[in-house]
Nucleic acid binder design. Structure first.
Length: 454
RNA sequence: GUGGUUGUAGCUCAGUAGGUUAGAGCGCUGGAUUGUGGUUCCAGAGGUCGUGGGUUCGAGCCCCAUCUACCACCCCA
């Protein structure tokens, strides 16, 4: 095992078998996206660092992969700058590009850049890899694929409703049981306002987010540790104890934070969305979860998160509404909503639950055994005819032992094998073997195509 | 980024208090069956024990470093 080649931490290769499974995920997601009127775009793997920095919070900036300037990147650096060892300032001097961290920010950039060519509301989907310099774990990679759908240029809550429908449709099709958790950033802002810590929304929501993980006491400890006043923490308690149905929770919430203008607005939004949802027939469980925070700091309205039910893995899908993402790029007053499906985690869920379909449309259906030149000459036209008829077919390229060829077909899970030797050629027929049942029958070209087209 | 666990044939793992030529199952190759895979039987190939140092007469086993995967925190798809 002398010095095997390898790939960077947190990245993966995909074998043919994995690719057919991955394509199954991408194809079903795409088909649903199209069904709801979304169109594809793509953006480059790298963006200017200036469009990426500062969009994902302090943590996010650290997790950005920066690209070293090409050429003599040290040229123009003073000795003093080097001696200072200020990593952040040094980074600015030697790197001006970075790998994309998600698909939403590049999309906002895209919208602003092509605003004159886009007719709003703009509905796009985008399926591409993103990169994060995170420490890898199970279901957590440094290069992974996101499948985003977003609508920009519309404030209607109908969009939020349709996103929930899309989530429901995708996971129904993939046969994954899920729960969609919904919250609203405005409600979180209202809570912060009412308890008198308006500027600490982020710290408060991050702590609240951990409620079902570490429990109430630890959450309170963390809040106080973060410098939230005792008084505020006390006033927060009733809100953490909401219970009952969605409308019951909203009523309790209304009396608690209704006096906050933004909080009241959030409550109205959630109420409207759930009114829409109540008229739909969904397979997916939808719940209002006031402890759902989500880190990305550009969300301003609805927040979504989807968890798979029978598997312990992080969220497999998440998103929300952002009112001013394009504003950062100089185009104010354009609101967007979107969600992102994590293809790699969905893959892990499907694997653990054994939910991948056995045969997929893109695998070979028929293989011709290769006996030699004469047989080849007989088989090749039949092979061409089969392909013309839309049957995925191939001929074994070498005149190897038959057992070897059969094993190869078997490993590749090819369901039919055509065996043509002297006997068959004399009759002008093909010996067609069904690899599942082991049955063989003599057929002519038309019959072969008919059997395989079925 | 902080703290921890791990790594032996293609895969899943054994490997006894550090002691001679490192084992098994599956897979692979060949044969029983010179035109038949998936089941059976027989034989064979394949490892500088993640990598680099060190301790020791002697290291797969002990120590250090490094890489990887994994776990917790952080954060998140």
């Amino acid at each position: 095992m002398a010095q095997k080649p390898s790939i960077p931490k947190g990245t993966r290769d995909f074998s043919p078998a994995e690719m057919t499974n991955r394509n199954y995920i991408f194809d079903t997601i795409k088909s649903i996206f199209r069904l709801y009127g979304f169109q594809p775009i793509e953006t480059p793997a790298m963006e200017n660092l200036s469009t990426l920095m500062g969009k994902y919070g302090e943590e996010g900036d650290k997790l950005l992969f920066k690209i070293l300037n090409s050429g003599d990147f040290a040229n123009g650096l003073s000795d003093q700058e080097l001696l200072e060892r200020n990593s952040i300032r040094l980074t600015n001097r030697i790197s001006e590009k970075g790998l994309r961290y998600d698909l939403t920010v590049p999309f906002a950039r895209f919208v602003v850049q092509y605003r004159n060519n886009i007719s709003f509301p703009f509905k796009r989907y985008q399926i591409q890899p993103v990169w994060r310099a995170d420490r890898p774990q199970k279901g957590r990679y440094r290069e992974f694929y996101q499948c985003d759908v977003d609508i920009v240029g519309s404030n209607s809550l109908l969009n939020e409703m349709e996103l929930v429908q899309i989530v429901d449709a995708v996971f129904s099709k993939l046969k994954i049981k899920t729960t969609i958790k919904i919250n609203n950033r405005k409600i979180l802002a209202g809570i912060a306002e009412v308890i008198g810590e308006k500027d600490r929304i982020v710290d408060i929501t991050i702590a609240i987010d951990k409620l079902d993980k570490i429990g109430l006491e630890k959450v309170n400890e963390e809040l106080i540790e973060k410098g939230i006043s005792m008084d505020a923490v006390n006033r927060l308690q009733p809100i953490l104890h909401l219970s009952g149905t969605v409308s019951e929770k909203l009523l309790q919430l209304e009396s608690a934070i209704g006096q906050s203008e933004i909080g009241a607005k959030g409550i109205t939004e959630v109420r409207t969305l759930f009114a829409y949802l109540s008229k739909l027939e969904l397979n997916t469980e939808v719940e209002l979860d006031l402890t759902l925070a989500r880190g990305l700091n550009y969300y301003t309205g609805a927040i979504f998160e989807v968890k798979a039910k029978d598997v312990a893995i992080g969220s497999i899908c998440g998103g929300g509404r952002y009112d001013d993402l394009t504003g950062i790029f100089g185009m104010p007053n354009v609101s967007g909503v979107g969600i992102s499906f994590g293809a790699d985690r969905i893959y892990d869920v499907l694997t653990q639950l054994n939910l991948f379909p056995l045969a997929t449309a893109d695998s070979t259906k028929l293989m011709f055994v290769n006996f030699g030149e004469k047989e080849e000459a007989f088989c090749l036209p039949v092979l061409t005819a089969a392909r013309k008829a839309g049957i995925n077919a191939e001929i074994f390229p070498d005149q190897s032992k038959m057992a070897k060829q059969m094993t190869w077909a078997n490993n590749k899970k090819i369901p039919f094998v055509a065996i043509v030797g002297e006997n068959e050629m004399a009759q002008g027929k093909i010996n067609l073997k069904n690899m599942v049942t082991g049955e063989q029958q003599l057929v002519d070209q038309q019959e072969l195509i008919k059997i395989l087209s079925a």
